[in-house]
Amino acid sequence: MKRMQAVVDDEVVRRARGGDENAFRTLVETHSRDVFRLAYRITRNEEDAEDTVQETFIRAYRNLDGFEARANFGTWLYRITANTAIDLLRRKKRHEGRHTPLGEVQPGVAGAQEGLVFGHQVRERVDSALVSLSELERTAFVLRHCEELSLAEISSTLDISVSATKQAIFRAVKKLRSSLAPLRDVSRTTP
């Protein structure tokens, strides 16, 4: 399982909780890149991901007292990151439309370029489909598919039932597969 941080320095967290600023700085410096990667996968936008990273650490700092010592700091930070990203996307959605239409499928590109073009089209359609997912669907999917969290962990992270988690992931996969279906059809019909 790909975790934000394999080894959690309990002592650093304990010192940070005690008000040691340098200890919290160590946590920020250790986890920032992983937090950014998760934030980007959920927000699909660098600027939003950057905002999410900063807001995540500020929320974490303000709520260090609520962190249970027996818990994994990385998982706790995941939870804050995912919810901060969802909050940010919901705020943005109230102000602007984020839908990006899917591009046209371009069949029949011959030769060595075909694989590259097909790969590019897959990426483009996956990206568009990810944007079209609801915040919950995308976050649940990213946590399962990319971060390899279990359903129980995702359920706890997003504060929803395991059943709702399954549904969110299922809907996400179904939409992603639908977005790729035209490419499959083209590849089947192209000589």
Binding site: E29, R41, L180
Partner: peptide, 20 residues
Amino acid sequence: RDVGSIPAPERGADYGAEVW
């Protein structure tokens, strides 16, 4: 598999210091 790992832009080694 085609959905893949959902690539994210890489951040440099000093990114944590920037965030701090």
